[in-house]
Design a protein around this nucleic acid. Structure first.
Lengths: 222, 222
DNA sequence: CGAGGGATTGACAGTAATCAAGGGATGTGG
DNA sequence: CCACATCCCTTGATTACTGTCAATCCCTCG
């Protein structure tokens, strides 16, 4: 139960700043769950029973418009938390779906609420989580929803790339489209074009080598 | 200095939950400033000396891309706070510009930092501010950056409308375009079309009567 | 009255959506 | 093991929308 204290990703987790005694306050089980691509964490409007920290994999948060069109508003990766909004208001505000096989810590909302009440050491983590959510939302808007489709796809690929070894795992064209607010066909065409131009080289299973410099040029023109 | 305690918009202000003694902690002057349309509160990257609560008027927060294109990422109105990010990191993260004459309370960052350290009653306000910033960022993306230009303009007009008396103050076509990620010409054409179709009726100076029901229909089709 | 800035409109080019069809990989059942 | 179905990606043809460039209009201000 208090294995959180020894968590390998604790330095980037919600509980990073907690001290030994704080973990005594946890009186409900925190369980580790694995979910496969396509599985759901929770749906918009449901009462939030759990928060989730992402240990590995990728989660998408989506919202729908009345006409049924959907938009992915954020991606969560290692160290990120899903369901924070339930600390302010019990209902989840997004559909949370796994888009790359994920290991998660499922934390009862009550645990976080209790810690938040009783130890000040959670406050700054919570504030900085919210802050980073806003920052990313703003960047999402300016970088991924502004300019031509081609620029936006290029920016998204850069954002999904590992700059060290110049590789990049992409998601389905449909998800990429929902991130950018364009159709799957447009996304597919542009990625195919990047492959023809040598900006991306296929390494199988949506895994690519990426010419970041070239993509940067594409991202900033047109 | 402690006139904050009697502020007429205190119920919606950052200091809503503070108690009498808390106001004793304020040892730097909070000043009320008025700014005209076009004036700037702060620029991205500057060290944040002040936070601002909006008493009246409208502030836009913008970000720029390397190629110079700009995007308005949020609007702040009565009760909203500009510059919250400086509590996490000293640099402002946007350009904050007045787009409708505004009265603001200019609060030294140190004041908020001190209150945040010394009284728990500010925490929940801060969390709920961040929460609402994220919620609005998400809605901005799904409602104002998804679908056809026409739908998006319609949604924006609805969002800017006073539902009581069916009126609406718009901003310059350029600002509306920067909110939606479309050109000023496109925005102008669509608003002109709304006027021809009777969805909007001009009442002078960017002030309109709005047929909300009709706009809702337009927002959800096409 | 003229200057200037924003709003509107037109013509046209370029981009992206739509509708439709084919290709390629994976997995299942015969 | 192969045939077939399925799912996703890709591509083509066409249409519709939006951006671009340019001109005009309107209002306010000096």
């Amino acid at each position: 139960m208090s294995s959180c204290e020894n968590c390998v990703i604790r330095h980037m987790a919600l509980f990073a700043d907690l001290q030994h005694d704080d973990f005594e306050l946890i009186h409900k089980p925190i369980t580790e769950v694995t979910k496969l691509t396509g599985e759901t964490l929770y749906n918009e409007g449901e009462e939030g029973e759990y928060l989730y920290t992402v240990r590995s994999g990728v989660i998408k948060l989506t919202q729908y418009l009345p006409d049924g069109s959907q938009r992915i508003v954020r991606l969560l990766r290692q160290g990120d938390v899903a369901g924070l909004e339930t600390l302010v208001n019990p209902a989840y505000e997004h559909f949370a779906t796994v888009i790359r096989e994920a290991e998660l810590c499922q934390i009862p909302r009550e645990v976080v609420e209790k810690l938040n009440k009783e130890t000040p050491r959670l406050h700054s983590q919570l504030l900085s989580r919210w802050h980073s959510a806003v920052k990313r939302a703003d960047a999402w808007l300016t970088e991924l929803s502004t300019g031509s489709s081609k620029s936006r796809v290029a920016r998204l690929v850069i954002g999904l790339s590992d700059k060290e070894d110049q590789t990049c795992h992409l998601f389905s064209r449909e998800d990429l489209g929902a991130i950018l607010g364009v159709t799957t066909e447009t996304t597919s065409r542009i990625i195919a074009e990047f492959k023809r131009d040598g900006a991306l080289k296929d390494q199988g299973k949506n895994h690519f080598w990426a010419d970041i410099d070239l993509l940067e040029i594409i991202a900033n023109q047109n």
